[in-house]
Amino acid sequence: MPRSKIELRHVRYIIAAAESGSFRRAAQDLGVEQSAISRRIRDVEDEIGAQLFRRHPAGVDLTDIGKQFLNQAAPGARQIGSALDGARTVANRGRHLRIGVFGPLTMGFLSELFGAFRGDRPGVKLRFSEGSCPELIAAVRRGQLDVGVVAEASPGKGFDVTHLWAEPVYAALPDGDPLADQKALRWDDLRDRHFVVTDLPTGDFAKGYLMRNLQTSPGDLQIEQLSVTRESLMQIVAHGDGVTIAGSAHVRHGVPGITFRLIEDAVLRYGAVHPRGALNRNLERLLALAKSFSERDDAWFARQRLMRPEHRRVPHVDCHRGARGRTPDRLQ
Protein backbone atom coordinates (compact mmCIF):
# COMPACT_ATOMS: atom_id res chain seq x y z
CA MET A 1 0.00 0.00 0.00
CA PRO A 2 1.46 3.38 -1.00
CA ARG A 3 2.29 5.74 1.85
CA SER A 4 -0.34 8.44 2.46
CA LYS A 5 0.66 12.08 2.01
CA ILE A 6 -2.03 13.29 4.38
CA GLU A 7 -0.65 15.32 7.29
CA LEU A 8 -2.15 16.70 10.48
CA ARG A 9 -2.65 20.11 8.87
CA HIS A 10 -4.92 18.54 6.22
CA VAL A 11 -7.23 17.28 8.97
CA ARG A 12 -7.09 20.64 10.77
CA TYR A 13 -8.17 22.39 7.58
CA ILE A 14 -11.06 19.97 7.07
CA ILE A 15 -12.24 20.44 10.67
CA ALA A 16 -12.06 24.24 10.35
CA ALA A 17 -13.96 24.25 7.05
CA ALA A 18 -16.64 21.93 8.41
CA GLU A 19 -17.10 24.02 11.57
CA SER A 20 -17.18 27.37 9.76
CA GLY A 21 -19.05 26.18 6.65
CA SER A 22 -16.66 28.18 4.47
CA PHE A 23 -13.14 27.84 3.11
CA ARG A 24 -12.72 31.60 3.40
CA ARG A 25 -13.73 31.74 7.07
CA ALA A 26 -11.61 28.65 7.82
CA ALA A 27 -8.61 30.41 6.29
CA GLN A 28 -9.27 33.50 8.42
CA ASP A 29 -9.60 31.43 11.57
CA LEU A 30 -6.33 29.58 10.91
CA GLY A 31 -4.42 32.59 9.61
CA VAL A 32 -3.61 31.07 6.20
CA GLU A 33 -4.49 31.79 2.59
CA GLN A 34 -7.83 30.48 1.32
CA SER A 35 -5.99 28.78 -1.55
CA ALA A 36 -4.04 26.72 0.99
CA ILE A 37 -7.31 25.45 2.51
CA SER A 38 -8.75 24.57 -0.89
CA ARG A 39 -5.56 22.89 -2.08
CA ARG A 40 -5.05 20.72 1.01
CA ILE A 41 -8.68 19.60 1.10
CA ARG A 42 -8.43 18.78 -2.61
CA ASP A 43 -5.33 16.67 -1.82
CA VAL A 44 -7.36 14.56 0.60
CA GLU A 45 -10.28 14.23 -1.81
CA ASP A 46 -7.90 13.12 -4.57
CA GLU A 47 -6.32 10.51 -2.33
CA ILE A 48 -9.59 8.93 -1.16
CA GLY A 49 -11.25 9.38 -4.58
CA ALA A 50 -14.38 11.17 -3.36
CA GLN A 51 -15.53 14.64 -2.38
CA LEU A 52 -15.59 15.59 1.29
CA PHE A 53 -17.50 18.84 0.74
CA ARG A 54 -20.32 20.06 -1.44
CA ARG A 55 -19.44 23.52 -2.75
CA HIS A 56 -22.20 26.11 -3.18
CA PRO A 57 -22.40 29.93 -3.32
CA ALA A 58 -23.09 30.23 0.42
CA GLY A 59 -20.13 28.05 1.42
CA VAL A 60 -19.53 24.32 1.87
CA ASP A 61 -21.22 21.34 3.53
CA LEU A 62 -19.85 17.92 4.36
CA THR A 63 -20.84 15.03 2.18
CA ASP A 64 -21.73 11.68 3.76
CA ILE A 65 -18.18 10.50 3.07
CA GLY A 66 -16.90 13.75 4.55
CA LYS A 67 -18.92 13.19 7.72
CA GLN A 68 -17.61 9.64 8.05
CA PHE A 69 -14.02 10.81 7.51
CA LEU A 70 -14.36 13.60 10.03
CA ASN A 71 -15.99 11.37 12.68
CA GLN A 72 -12.99 9.06 12.55
CA ALA A 73 -10.19 11.60 12.00
CA ALA A 74 -11.27 14.47 14.26
CA PRO A 75 -10.77 12.71 17.64
CA GLY A 76 -7.21 11.74 16.69
CA ALA A 77 -6.42 15.23 15.46
CA ARG A 78 -7.80 16.78 18.63
CA GLN A 79 -5.83 14.31 20.76
CA ILE A 80 -2.63 15.25 18.94
CA GLY A 81 -3.51 18.94 19.37
CA SER A 82 -4.02 18.37 23.08
CA ALA A 83 -0.68 16.59 23.31
CA LEU A 84 1.01 19.52 21.57
CA ASP A 85 -0.63 22.01 23.93
CA GLY A 86 0.55 19.97 26.90
CA ALA A 87 4.07 19.86 25.54
CA ARG A 88 4.02 23.64 25.00
CA THR A 89 2.90 24.13 28.60
CA VAL A 90 5.84 22.11 29.84
CA ALA A 91 8.16 23.99 27.48
CA ASN A 92 6.85 27.32 28.73
CA ARG A 93 7.74 26.27 32.24
CA GLY A 94 11.28 26.27 30.92
CA ARG A 95 10.97 29.97 30.17
CA HIS A 96 12.96 30.64 33.29
CA LEU A 97 16.44 29.94 34.52
CA ARG A 98 17.08 28.66 38.03
CA ILE A 99 20.27 30.27 39.23
CA GLY A 100 22.05 29.51 42.48
CA VAL A 101 24.51 32.08 43.78
CA PHE A 102 27.11 31.79 46.50
CA GLY A 103 26.78 35.25 48.02
CA PRO A 104 25.12 38.52 47.02
CA LEU A 105 24.16 39.51 43.49
CA THR A 106 26.56 42.44 43.80
CA MET A 107 29.52 40.04 43.51
CA GLY A 108 31.79 40.45 40.52
CA PHE A 109 29.84 41.45 37.42
CA LEU A 110 26.70 39.44 38.25
CA SER A 111 24.39 42.45 38.48
CA GLU A 112 25.52 43.71 35.08
CA LEU A 113 25.40 40.20 33.59
CA PHE A 114 21.83 39.52 34.69
CA GLY A 115 20.77 42.99 33.54
CA ALA A 116 22.21 42.31 30.08
CA PHE A 117 20.47 38.92 29.93
CA ARG A 118 17.10 40.45 30.84
CA GLY A 119 17.54 43.01 28.09
CA ASP A 120 18.38 40.26 25.59
CA ARG A 121 15.71 37.77 26.74
CA PRO A 122 12.91 39.81 28.35
CA GLY A 123 10.51 36.85 28.32
CA VAL A 124 12.76 34.65 30.45
CA LYS A 125 12.44 34.91 34.23
CA LEU A 126 15.48 34.52 36.44
CA ARG A 127 14.83 32.66 39.68
CA PHE A 128 17.55 33.02 42.28
CA SER A 129 18.49 31.06 45.35
CA GLU A 130 21.45 31.26 47.66
CA GLY A 131 23.44 28.42 49.17
CA SER A 132 26.87 27.08 49.98
CA CYS A 133 29.13 25.98 47.13
CA PRO A 134 28.61 22.24 47.84
CA GLU A 135 24.83 22.76 48.09
CA LEU A 136 24.71 24.62 44.76
CA ILE A 137 26.83 22.04 42.96
CA ALA A 138 24.63 19.24 44.32
CA ALA A 139 21.50 21.10 43.20
CA VAL A 140 22.91 21.48 39.67
CA ARG A 141 23.79 17.79 39.58
CA ARG A 142 20.25 16.85 40.70
CA GLY A 143 18.69 19.12 38.07
CA GLN A 144 17.19 21.47 40.67
CA LEU A 145 19.28 24.38 39.36
CA ASP A 146 20.30 25.21 35.81
CA VAL A 147 23.52 26.88 36.88
CA GLY A 148 25.36 27.68 40.11
CA VAL A 149 27.83 30.52 40.66
CA VAL A 150 30.42 29.18 43.09
CA ALA A 151 33.87 29.96 44.44
CA GLU A 152 36.91 27.67 44.39
CA ALA A 153 34.95 24.52 43.60
CA SER A 154 35.05 21.66 41.12
CA PRO A 155 31.71 20.22 39.96
CA GLY A 156 32.89 16.69 39.23
CA LYS A 157 32.40 14.31 36.33
CA GLY A 158 29.79 15.23 33.72
CA PHE A 159 29.68 18.92 34.62
CA ASP A 160 31.68 21.96 33.53
CA VAL A 161 32.74 25.30 34.98
CA THR A 162 32.63 28.50 32.95
CA HIS A 163 35.27 30.69 34.59
CA LEU A 164 33.91 34.16 35.37
CA TRP A 165 36.33 36.28 37.37
CA ALA A 166 38.88 36.24 40.17
CA GLU A 167 39.03 38.76 42.97
CA PRO A 168 41.38 39.71 45.80
CA VAL A 169 40.48 39.02 49.40
CA TYR A 170 40.55 41.95 51.80
CA ALA A 171 40.73 42.26 55.56
CA ALA A 172 37.90 44.43 56.88
CA LEU A 173 39.19 46.42 59.86
CA PRO A 174 37.62 49.11 62.04
CA ASP A 175 38.88 52.60 61.24
CA GLY A 176 41.83 53.33 63.50
CA ASP A 177 42.97 49.72 63.73
CA PRO A 178 46.80 49.54 63.89
CA LEU A 179 46.86 47.38 60.74
CA ALA A 180 44.94 50.04 58.81
CA ASP A 181 48.21 51.99 58.42
CA GLN A 182 49.68 49.22 56.26
CA LYS A 183 49.06 49.23 52.51
CA ALA A 184 48.71 45.45 52.37
CA LEU A 185 48.67 42.61 54.87
CA ARG A 186 50.01 39.09 55.13
CA TRP A 187 48.23 36.20 56.79
CA ASP A 188 50.83 36.35 59.57
CA ASP A 189 49.61 39.86 60.43
CA LEU A 190 46.13 38.47 61.08
CA ARG A 191 46.94 35.23 62.89
CA ASP A 192 46.19 36.54 66.40
CA ARG A 193 43.14 38.63 65.53
CA HIS A 194 39.56 37.91 66.61
CA PHE A 195 37.53 37.16 63.45
CA VAL A 196 33.76 37.39 63.18
CA VAL A 197 31.76 35.70 60.39
CA THR A 198 28.07 35.04 59.79
CA ASP A 199 26.29 31.70 60.05
CA LEU A 200 25.16 32.08 56.41
CA PRO A 201 26.76 29.93 53.67
CA THR A 202 29.22 32.76 52.98
CA GLY A 203 30.18 32.72 56.66
CA ASP A 204 30.75 28.97 56.65
CA PHE A 205 32.99 29.41 53.61
CA ALA A 206 34.86 32.31 55.25
CA LYS A 207 35.49 30.23 58.39
CA GLY A 208 36.95 27.35 56.38
CA TYR A 209 38.97 29.74 54.23
CA LEU A 210 40.46 31.40 57.33
CA MET A 211 41.30 28.06 58.92
CA ARG A 212 43.16 26.93 55.78
CA ASN A 213 45.12 30.15 55.33
CA LEU A 214 45.92 31.14 58.90
CA GLN A 215 47.59 27.73 59.37
CA THR A 216 47.02 27.76 63.09
CA SER A 217 45.95 24.90 65.31
CA PRO A 218 42.15 24.88 65.79
CA GLY A 219 42.52 25.69 69.48
CA ASP A 220 44.39 28.92 68.70
CA LEU A 221 41.94 30.23 66.10
CA GLN A 222 39.70 33.07 67.16
CA ILE A 223 36.72 32.80 64.83
CA GLU A 224 33.29 33.68 66.16
CA GLN A 225 30.27 32.75 64.03
CA LEU A 226 27.29 35.06 64.55
CA SER A 227 23.62 34.74 63.55
CA VAL A 228 23.56 38.05 61.69
CA THR A 229 23.41 39.25 58.11
CA ARG A 230 26.54 40.25 56.24
CA GLU A 231 25.54 43.90 56.51
CA SER A 232 25.11 43.67 60.29
CA LEU A 233 28.44 41.88 60.52
CA MET A 234 30.12 44.87 58.91
CA GLN A 235 28.58 47.15 61.51
CA ILE A 236 29.95 44.88 64.25
CA VAL A 237 33.41 45.25 62.71
CA ALA A 238 32.97 49.03 62.39
CA HIS A 239 32.20 49.16 66.13
CA GLY A 240 35.50 47.43 66.91
CA ASP A 241 34.16 44.03 67.97
CA GLY A 242 36.30 41.98 65.60
CA VAL A 243 37.67 41.83 62.05
CA THR A 244 36.56 39.83 59.04
CA ILE A 245 37.38 39.19 55.39
CA ALA A 246 35.56 40.70 52.42
CA GLY A 247 35.46 40.63 48.65
CA SER A 248 35.60 43.33 46.02
CA ALA A 249 31.90 44.23 46.23
CA HIS A 250 32.30 45.71 49.70
CA VAL A 251 35.45 47.55 48.68
CA ARG A 252 33.75 49.06 45.62
CA HIS A 253 30.81 50.35 47.63
CA GLY A 254 32.58 51.05 50.89
CA VAL A 255 31.21 50.69 54.41
CA PRO A 256 31.28 53.60 56.90
CA GLY A 257 33.70 53.00 59.75
CA ILE A 258 35.66 50.24 57.99
CA THR A 259 39.07 50.22 56.32
CA PHE A 260 39.76 47.49 53.77
CA ARG A 261 43.28 46.18 53.33
CA LEU A 262 44.45 43.81 50.64
CA ILE A 263 45.71 40.41 51.84
CA GLU A 264 48.73 39.49 49.76
CA ASP A 265 48.33 36.47 47.44
CA ALA A 266 44.77 35.85 48.63
CA VAL A 267 42.56 35.27 45.61
CA LEU A 268 39.12 33.73 45.12
CA ARG A 269 38.11 32.40 41.71
CA TYR A 270 34.46 32.30 40.74
CA GLY A 271 32.83 30.16 38.09
CA ALA A 272 29.44 29.02 36.79
CA VAL A 273 28.80 25.28 37.25
CA HIS A 274 26.51 23.72 34.64
CA PRO A 275 25.88 20.39 32.91
CA ARG A 276 28.32 19.30 30.23
CA GLY A 277 27.13 18.95 26.64
CA ALA A 278 23.94 20.27 25.05
CA LEU A 279 22.31 23.09 27.03
CA ASN A 280 18.99 24.87 26.65
CA ARG A 281 19.19 28.01 24.55
CA ASN A 282 18.59 30.41 27.43
CA LEU A 283 21.39 28.93 29.52
CA GLU A 284 23.66 28.94 26.47
CA ARG A 285 22.92 32.64 26.00
CA LEU A 286 23.58 33.45 29.67
CA LEU A 287 26.92 31.64 29.55
CA ALA A 288 27.85 33.35 26.28
CA LEU A 289 27.18 36.74 27.88
CA ALA A 290 29.20 35.70 30.94
CA LYS A 291 32.10 34.72 28.69
CA SER A 292 31.99 38.10 26.96
CA PHE A 293 32.15 39.84 30.35
CA SER A 294 35.05 37.64 31.47
CA GLU A 295 37.00 38.63 28.34
CA ARG A 296 36.85 42.37 28.94
CA ASP A 297 40.18 44.18 29.13
CA ASP A 298 42.31 44.43 32.24
CA ALA A 299 41.46 48.11 32.72
CA TRP A 300 37.76 47.30 33.12
CA PHE A 301 38.53 44.55 35.63
CA ALA A 302 40.82 46.89 37.57
CA ARG A 303 38.05 49.50 37.83
CA GLN A 304 35.78 46.82 39.30
CA ARG A 305 38.61 45.69 41.63
CA LEU A 306 38.46 42.29 39.96
CA MET A 307 40.86 40.21 37.90
CA ARG A 308 40.43 38.30 34.70
CA PRO A 309 39.81 34.64 35.57
CA GLU A 310 43.20 33.43 34.30
CA HIS A 311 45.16 35.67 36.67
CA ARG A 312 46.94 33.91 39.49
CA ARG A 313 48.46 36.74 41.55
CA VAL A 314 46.88 39.71 43.28
CA PRO A 315 47.79 43.02 41.61
CA HIS A 316 48.84 46.00 43.67
CA VAL A 317 45.81 47.74 45.09
CA ASP A 318 46.00 51.04 46.95
CA CYS A 319 44.48 51.75 50.35
CA HIS A 320 40.71 51.82 50.77
CA ARG A 321 39.10 53.43 53.75
CA GLY A 322 35.43 53.32 54.62
CA ALA A 323 33.03 55.26 52.41
CA ARG A 324 29.34 55.64 52.15
CA GLY A 325 27.42 52.76 50.69
CA ARG A 326 26.23 49.36 51.73
CA THR A 327 26.13 45.97 50.14
CA PRO A 328 23.16 43.63 50.63
CA ASP A 329 24.20 40.16 51.64
CA ARG A 330 21.06 38.18 50.82
CA LEU A 331 19.22 37.69 47.55
CA GLN A 332 15.96 39.56 47.52
Rank of each mutant, 00 (worst) to 15 (best):
V44Q: 01
G271E: 04
R281N: 05
M234K: 10
R93L: 13
L145H: 00
V150R: 03
V237Q: 09
T89G: 15
S4E: 06
R330T: 09
H320Y: 13
Y270M: 15
R312H: 13
E45Q: 10
D85A: 15
G271F: 08
P75N: 02
P155M: 01
F301L: 12
A299S: 15
V147A: 05
V11K: 02
V237A: 10
K183W: 07
R269K: 15
D297G: 01
A206I: 01
A26G: 04
R261G: 07
T229K: 05
D199L: 05
H96D: 03
L179Q: 12
V317K: 07
R312G: 06
D175A: 14
A26P: 10
L126G: 05
R12P: 00
G208S: 10
S129G: 10
D220S: 07
R9E: 14
M1K: 08
Q332D: 15
P218H: 08
A151E: 06
G240A: 08
E7T: 08
R308W: 03
T229G: 13
L173Y: 07
G115T: 10
R193W: 11
G143E: 02
A323Q: 14
S82W: 11
A50M: 10
D265K: 12
R191E: 02
R24Q: 15
D43T: 05
R127K: 12
S292E: 07
R281G: 08
R93N: 13
V150I: 09
